[in-house]
Structures are given as C-alpha cells and as structure tokens.
Write a protein that binds this DNA or RNA. Sequence first.
DNA 1: ACGCTAATATGACAATTGTCACATTAGGTT
DNA 2: AACCTAATGTGACAATTGTCATATTAGCGT
Lengths: 203, 203
Amino acid sequence: MKIIIADDDQIVKLSLKTILESLEIEVLGTGGNGREAVELYKEHHPDVALLDIRMPVMTGLEAAGEILKYDSSAKILFLTTFSDDEYIIEALNMGVKGYILKQDFESISPALTAVKAGQSVFGRDVVSKLSSLVPGEKTDYRKLGISEKEEEVIALVAKGLNNKEIGQAMFLSEGTVRNYISGVLEKLQLRDRTQLAIFHHTH
Amino acid sequence: MKIIIADDDQIVKLSLKTILESLEIEVLGTGGNGREAVELYKEHHPDVALLDIRMPVMTGLEAAGEILKYDSSAKILFLTTFSDDEYIIEALNMGVKGYILKQDFESISPALTAVKAGQSVFGRDVVSKLSSLVPGEKTDYRKLGISEKEEEVIALVAKGLNNKEIGQAMFLSEGTVRNYISGVLEKLQLRDRTQLAIFHHTH
DNA sequence: ACGCTAATATGACAATTGTCACATTAGGTT
DNA sequence: AACCTAATGTGACAATTGTCATATTAGCGT
C-alpha cells in the first residue's frame, strides 16, 4: 500500500507518517499544501492520496480537482478536523473516495485499505451530517391533519401547476382547488402557494 | 473480528462464510432471513452484522431497525446486489454503517475492518447514487444571464417572501421587484414565482 | 324516509401578481 | 456639456390568487 500525505499542520503530518509507516504502509511523500500534493501525486502515483481540506496556496478541494483531472481513477481520502460539513457535498460530487476525521488515528489505516479496495469511507460524524442533507423522510402530511386529496393538491402545487391545471388534473373545478389550497395553507400556517411549494420541497 | 451473516441466498452466504473465515474473521453464525439475523445478533453480539436487504419473513431493513432498537451502537453493514438505490436513504437515516455490493468479495473484508473501527463504508456505485441524491451543485445563475441583484431576488422568492417584503429587504420599491422577477421569469422560461421557487430548490 | 356529513361547486371580493410602456436618476464616456 | 446606458421607479392593466359565505350533491347510518 503506497500513499502520499498533504497537511499544512507539521505535527499531524509527521505523526500520521510515523504511525502509518509502522503499519507496513509506504508513505511515498508528504507535502504542506495542495500544489505540493498535486506534484507528489503526478510523481508517485500512489494507491491513495491523503489530503487535508484547509491548506494554504491551494486547498485540498482544488488539489483533488487537479488530481482527478490528471487521473480520473485517483483515490482521494480527505482528512478533516471536524464539522467541515460545507465541503462534504462538493467533495462527494467531485468523486472523492472518503472523508474522515483526523482525530482517531487508528481508524485511518482500515479506511485506507477499504479505499484501496474501491470502497468509499466516511467518518462517523460525517455520515450523520450527510444523512441530514439527504432528502430524508418526507413529511407525513396525514399526521398534520391533511387528507389524501389535499396531499395530491400539494404535490401539484409543488410541481408548479396553477389552479386551473390542477383542476383539470384532478377533475375538480378551479374553485374547489382554491378551497383545498386555502384549507391546506391554514393547516400548515403558510401564506401562499409559493410557500407551500417551498415547504413541500424542503420538508 | 467477530461477525454474523444473513442472506437468503445459500450460495452467497456460504461463499462469504468460507472466504471470510480464511481471513481470520470469525463467523459466529449465519441466517437466511431478518428474524434469524436479529436472533443471532442478540445471541452473539458481533462486532459487525452483515445483512442482505431483500430477505423473506423480515427484510434486512426491518432487521436493522430491530437490532438498532436493541443495541443502538450496533454496526450493521448491508450487502446489496446492485441498484437498490431506494433503500439507501432509509438505511442512512437509520444509522446503518455501510452499504456495499456483494459482487466484489475481496473488498468486503477491508470494509468490515473499517466499520469495526467506526467508519462508514459505501460501495462505489452506491456513492454515486448517493451523490446524485444530495442537493448537488447549485445552478450558476450568472451563466444564465442573471445578474447578482436578480439572483438575490430569486433567493428571497425561494424563501417565500412576497414582493413587498423583498422590496423592504433589498431597499427597492415593490414595483422594481416585480420588474426584476418578470425579467427573471422570462430568462428562465418560467411562468410565476412559484415555479421560480421550485426551480431554485431543485436546480 | 330522514337527517347528517363530506365532498364539490359557485360567486363575490380584495389582495397579489405579472406585464408593459414609460419616467427618472446616476455614472461613465466621449 | 452632451450622450449613453444601467438601475430604479411609476402607473395602468389583466390575470391569478386566497378568503369566505353559501349552495348542491351524494352517500351513510338510523
């Protein structure tokens, strides 16, 4: 197993190197910023690249982009202090293979192995952030005193239909649709159909 | 490392058992459905529970729920054939530790190790499904010929404000706000503010 | 059959919204 | 200064929307 490490914190970088080398993991090189990480990658083609997110000159994100542009099959594992939730999404879409906390050293080695084997690894807290971002369980409108028909109306409003179109879709008169919506707004404490659509798309 | 395995496919189950046992992994028991998985878990308290999703009597999802209710720190790893994307979200929110494909046997072992160490592991395809579910890259309005002010208006519409409120928030007259919105709708080929809010929340 | 209730519809009304044509203003350019 | 352009505002207008009071209808239970 051959890797490279990039972290602007010397202590972290060296500790990691020492620990990992004691576990038959070959550290081909270490760098202190994103640019160095990219150079190291091009030079050594490691199995996995271990990158810090926050680094001077070039961030880990940017470096990951460069590396993936150079080698789209690169396996990149982000090391983060904690609660850098903002970058998770970007990292995910970028095709990065992992996002773990640099706190618990002992779990980094298995993570490396799993990533080398083609899996993606995420730290405990990271996953909980992630699952909170994912669409999640949709609101159960029935529990808010909303009928099945009303729910259908909501769905159509949330698709951007106007009252006439909703009426045609549900075989109701436009007026009835208005009444339904009026009732729903009341129950949900909303003001207008726009807020209703937003509610539907966020809850 | 001690685990249990539940899969209704005998071949998969036994192959897994054989392979893993050849890797110093102790298989405490195997079962063919969710109910058996729960019983096995309560009996053996394994480091990790390896569960198939689709199983007769009780599905892997349900079993996971039972197990987590019994031991909230249980480490559960789902084995899926492929493209069971529908369950990913549910599994995630449930607090499951991994979701990997049962195809590539050789990567299951490292996944187990990582999970035991407290990480979460997801198979390659699984992650790509996941990242497609996540909010994703927000549309760059600037590339659609939309100015900064217009973008601000859009953001406020997407929060559910009416024109008067947007005007107050941006120190513009209500009429100007209307003009902005009118222009934006034209550029985005939308009909009204509701569709605009939806667009903002989905693109 | 009788009464009750839910679902659907209607009409009236005010408020909001979207469109458009046309000011007004403020900065830059020449 | 004269000009141009972008940003902002205004007024008028029709369409849509939300609210409400009030039918109409159909089904259900007694």
